[in-house]
Design a protein around this nucleic acid. Structure first.
Lengths: 254, 254
DNA sequence: CGAAATTTTGAAATTGATCAACGCCGGTGG
DNA sequence: CCACCGGCGTTGATCAATTTCAAAATTTCG
């Protein structure tokens, strides 16, 4: 109950129609964009989540689907052995909770990596609205289909070598972060998660993550500055992902 | 085009209303069961697929979702390196194609492991029917949610040891095959796939699958007879799955 | 029956995990 | 202001699980 109380105490952002106005993700919002510039949900509400605070936990009853407006959130499950497995890192615009629609309760935990804001969309009204709006239904089905394909992609990732997984992870993060271009060319990405979290996402030991990043750095493919990573040679990273396991940095670096 | 032709030439089962009558999966069919004992889809049609024949291939346009009525089907993708990754084995009653709804085209291949029969549900009418039947919409969303959770389960599976993965696989197969009880107690399951296919599903080398099955057999937990496997001690298999990696057959076998 | 595919078994090689130690950085409190 | 502390990251050495390579045994199917 302690965590439930913590969740309830989270700040609730004004639910007025003006809420959508400043939303950076409204163009691609699940609710669609109505004429007035607000989303199609009349009863959605916002919420801010502090770093380290849970958005929901496995086992809790489900009432909403969440759209991440800002910040970063991870979802994870805890194995019987006690160690956590990260199922996804979410960036602004992502929808969290598709898996739990019609499931009754959450199957995993969600926690903010940095201060975040989400939009809560009540499940009941979401489903009911689908009966009226074919457009919404299509967006919902598409969103769920994409979630399935994202998981299939993770499954593929798990068959790659450590180096390939890290390279693919960096490329994916860069793509999701909207390709913030750095001054000296190449993409710069800001990692909201620790090495350990990357490892628990990719199924690699922290040490392996660190070693592999170092190797990529020494090969001149990336530049590391605390939690900021600059992709100096995305093409080479791509080649690493595509290459046969026998190849590696030494063979790929142009 | 060759494969498209092959698909079109597949036998089309009579689309009369009587089709549902003999369907072993109609109780749990996506379409629901109407008063007349037939499913809610007026325009679905059946199709039989021979062993080794493809139901669909990655890249093809999507027209239908399939409900497997009998037989066994696997879905897979082919990596750049050429080797296949199996994404799922389907048993009668399973729905195939959720991932592709609203995606436009298939993201993976589906092929019959043994002669199979499927029911084709046109995508367009499925989505349109959801607007009229809240019941159908709920079943569809639940099905897609379950598919997401199935993939999350696969993700968890990939973090287990070879022995745990095999044990879990056997238990899952037994559950899905409806717990056909054997004469001498314990569950008997008929594997429609080869050792190599099990390996490409669990991400294990064929040799590892074979070795692990042998070890389970020698520990007295299972009995192997060609492609038939009898689970002599499901409880012990469960314990293997739950146990810490340090434990293994020797420690678990009661 | 015989050829091809699958399965099994053995031995060696390899990848990534684990164990261990150290450095770095930020915060905290004297 | 500085010393201490804890978390995080890096690096090195060793270890274990699984893959790979190789070959024989078995099964399947034409």
């Amino acid at each position: 109950m302690t965590f439930t109380a913590a969740i309830e105490s989270a700040a609730v952002i004004d639910a007025a129609a003006g809420r959508c106005a400043g939303c950076s993700t409204r163009e691609s919002c699940l609710g669609g964009l109505k004429a007035a510039g607000v989303c199609g949900f009349s009863d959605s509400s916002g919420r801010s989540v502090e770093r380290g605070q849970h958005l929901f936990r496995a086992g809790e009853a489900i009432h909403c689907v969440f759209v991440l407006r800002s910040g970063a959130i991870k979802t994870y499950v805890t194995a019987a052995s006690g160690d956590e497995q990260i199922l996804g890192f979410y960036s602004p615009g992502d929808v969290i909770g598709y898996d739990s629609i019609s499931a009754g309760k959450h199957s995993r935990n969600a926690v903010a990596l940095v201060p975040a804001e989400v939009c809560r969309i009540p499940l009941e009204s979401l489903v009911q609205s689908c009966a009226q709006s074919a457009d919404l239904l299509n967006r919902l089905l598409a969103g769920m289909g994409q979630e399935i394909q994202r998981l299939q992609g993770m499954l593929k990732m798990e068959r790659l070598t450590a180096e390939q997984r890290i390279a693919l992870f960096l490329l994916n993060q860069a793509r999701r972060q909207g390709r913030t271009e750095g001054s000296a060319g190449g993409y710069v990405l800001q990692l909201a998660m620790t090495r350990g979290e990357i490892g628990r996402f990719l199924d690699l030991a922290t040490e392996t993550v660190s070693r592999t990043l170092t190797r990529l750095k020494e090969a001149g493919l990336i530049q590391i500055d605390r939690s900021g990573i600059r992709l100096l040679n995305p093409t080479a990273l791509h080649r690493i992902v595509q290459s046969q396991p026998v190849n590696s940095v030494e063979r790929i670096a142009a």
